[in-house]
Computed example of a mutant assay.
Amino acid sequence: MNNNSLPQIFLNTLNNHKLTIVCAESITAGLLSSTIASVPGASSILMGGVVTYSSELKCSILKIDPSVIDKHSAESMETTVEMVYGLIKIYPSADIYVAVTGIASPGTPEYPVNGEVGDVFIAIYYKRTKPELRLSKFYMNLGNLDRNIIREEAVQTILEKVLDVINSNNLKES
């Protein structure tokens, strides 16, 4: 699939299914929402998003229990899942919730990271399916690439994974 056409395919698919999306971004720092919004007509599907780059904002805006971050780190699947659930509280009327965290560069003494550069954690919550199928979690390691390449690859993967979730759930409903 041509990456330039992926945002358009994404928009068309969500429009065809009358779905809306909201995003909580850390590693991508708004790039996911911006990519979706780059397609004319995106306002029909994109309700909004939050960038919670710091642990403080993850806790204050998305209401993540600080003990989850203390135990697992700000860049973990556990934190990503909590980000999705925080989004549901903020935007209860959306259909799809996406959260993403990860590590785009080595840590510093002031902010050590727990993991490897290239670790990306994605959580997708899709309300229009059976409760036991609503949450999908994805982990990938993109390797020690340039931080912006990691961010761009994460966005492309998220768009593809959301489409996969929609398509697999719609096949089950047919």
Score class of each variant (00 low, 15 high):
N15M: 11
E56I: 13
N114K: 13
S26Y: 01
K89E: 15
M77S: 15
F10G: 07
H17T: 03
V81K: 14
D65A: 12
S54C: 08
F10K: 04
T101S: 15
L32W: 00
A42S: 15
Y85T: 05
N15G: 02
L62S: 12
S44T: 13
I21W: 01
T80W: 05
T101D: 11
S93F: 04
K71Q: 14
T28L: 10
I69C: 08
I90Y: 11
D95E: 14
I96E: 08
S105E: 14
I61L: 14
G102M: 06
M47W: 03
G49T: 05
V84Q: 06
P106H: 08
V100Q: 08
A74V: 06
T13W: 03
G107F: 10
N15F: 03
I27E: 00
S44C: 06
A37H: 01
F10Q: 05
E110H: 12
I90G: 07
E82T: 04
V113E: 11
A99P: 04
G86S: 09
S55A: 15
Y111R: 13
S26G: 02
M77E: 15
T79Y: 11
S26L: 02
I61N: 07
S73G: 09
S93I: 07
E25H: 02
K58I: 12
T101M: 09
S76K: 08
A29G: 03
Y53M: 08
V22R: 00
S44L: 10
I61P: 10
E25A: 03
P66Y: 06
V39K: 05
N16T: 09
S44D: 14
V100P: 04
P109K: 15
I9P: 02
L14W: 02
Y53D: 09
T80P: 03
A99V: 11
T52H: 04
D70Q: 14
A99L: 10
L19D: 05
D70M: 09
V113N: 10
S33F: 01
I96D: 06
S54D: 07
A94R: 05
L11I: 07
G49A: 11
L87N: 10
G86L: 09
G107D: 11
A42P: 02
V68M: 05
G102V: 06
M47N: 12
S60V: 12
T35H: 01
S26W: 00
T13Y: 01
I45P: 00
I69W: 09
V84E: 04
A29Y: 01
T20A: 06
S93C: 07
T35W: 01
T20D: 02
M47V: 14
V81G: 04
C23D: 03
V98P: 03
T20C: 06
P92W: 06
F10I: 11
V39P: 01
P40F: 02
E75C: 13
V113L: 07
I36N: 00
L87Y: 03
S55T: 13
S54W: 09
C59G: 10
C59F: 07
I45Q: 05
